[in-house]
Design a protein around this nucleic acid. Structure first.
Lengths: 249, 249
DNA sequence: CGTTGAGTTGATGGAACTCAAATAGCGTGG
DNA sequence: CCACGCTATTTGAGTTCCATCAACTCAACG
């Protein structure tokens, strides 16, 4: 497994933008930006691409020349700088922006790999920066999004540092559900694109422990699990658990 | 202890800026920005202030209207949103910028408290943003700093999630030393401004465990500890430990 | 129908937490 | 300057949670 080449600079669909047809247009920041700036979308040279499972969107060390909108699927962002194990830093979901945190640097500090077959849009950074220069509104929104990316890292930190395994898994499921709901993708049932091991690498656990927690949450009647499908049964109890601080029962 | 009022909007020294006299001028981003923009520093309306131990620089929910340069001392940034325990997110050291991550939001998402008596400069956000508008160089540097703040959160995440207690403490000491060195504050010996418990709250451990780790590192001859003073003896071994992944000995 | 990879379940040990007690620093007032 | 008292820190003993190792189930696929 683990295919190798980066997708950024090659294999884009020649397909034109067509943002108006995209189901995510309502929540797509670049699309709104273009609209706000009242300029033709073509100026941004947004391209679409499809990434098969295991393929990298970009790799550590790549030049930073674009960011990405996830249209469908799921991308994991990992740190390859140290150690053998793949440290998962973030899962990017449909409607979310990928690679914002790299924009300050010359080369990517992380690697992003598709956890399942995914579709995304490539937004060239230089063109977008130019757009920012023309519209202060776009620029300040963009600044907010970048700062937001830092906040997400902090939330994960709190989840991992202060909570026990069960609370971590509960919190993970909640945040997944909430984020999918924001972009209108999910109902009461969610399909996990990633494996138990990838979840474990994200939460700082082992896959066996994640599995046990799923079982335990199901036993308590908070969720139902069938392979990669999770159905939310008792949201309130789940929320209570997720904000517990490595105690209680 | 734990005094209450925020320092941001009152009690500034009436003292004028005088950046040229500040020992940190060489590494002070706002000062450089002013210089680059070739405008009088007075425009930024930078004020100095002194914060006694335990006093808040700003609190969660405060309006975001400034960021801060640490001139001396140490400020801990904590998350008060949940749970009883004070979750320490970051220690800001002399020469570093505080509250960057809040700039995207209307109100502060965290609280910052002086861990020891500290001196800092208050940089009004609106005035600074205006300066950014005039100088693209300043703006892009500023963007880099904001993205950098997110990277710091990720580094802490990796330290806490993937390493055991000893490696966390070793990594913490190293990063402290490195950061103090960058700004020319430290030699072979460092004075910790924070208590063992605050370190524990930062590293996701208990104060007893932190203490045991200090003792163990000293026993192995990597450092010497005398109360809040830490002397670095074997940097190489410390670095090896800090990048170990919860194994080895 | 065997193979392969993901997921579940069980048994065991170790790392870190908890509770508890002893000691060392530090500021304060005599 | 010293004694006092407070807090921070260290050290010890027992317990808990999760990682580890290992066996087993299940579904997909040739």
């Amino acid at each position: 497994m683990a295919t190798e080449t980066t997708v950024g600079r090659h294999a884009p669909d020649p397909e034109p933008v067509g943002c108006t047809l995209c189901g995510l247009a309502r929540v797509c920041f670049p699309a709104r930006a273009v609209h706000d700036a009242a300029r033709p979308a073509a100026d941004l040279r947004i391209r679409r691409t499809r990434v098969p499972r295991g393929r990298a969107v970009y790799r550590m060390g790549d030049k930073v020349d674009a960011f990405f909108m996830i249209r469908s699927g799921c991308i994991k962002e990992i740190d390859e700088s140290v150690g053998r194990r793949a440290a998962v830093l973030h899962f990017a979901l449909p409607g979310e922006i990928l690679s914002l945190h790299n924009l300050g640097s010359l080369v990517c500090t992380t690697t992003s790999i598709a956890v399942e077959p995914s579709h995304l849009c490539i937004v060239p950074w230089s063109a977008f920066r130019h757009l920012c220069g023309e519209s202060p509104a776009v620029e300040s929104e963009f600044l907010r999004l970048i700062a937001q990316a830092g906040v997400a890292a902090r939330e994960l930190l709190l989840l991992i540092r202060d909570k026990d395994a069960l609370a971590r898994v509960a919190g993970f499921l909640q945040s997944l559900r909430r984020r999918l709901q924001i972009h209108g993708t999910a109902g009461r049932e969610v399909r996990l694109g990633m494996t138990r091991e990838e979840i474990a690498d994200y939460l700082g656990l082992r896959s066996e422990t994640v599995s046990r927690c799923f079982t335990e949450l199901a036993r308590r009647g908070l969720i139902q699990v069938r392979a990669k499908r999770v159905r939310f049964v008792d949201d309130a109890a789940l929320a209570r658990l997720g904000s517990a601080e490595s105690a209680s029962s």
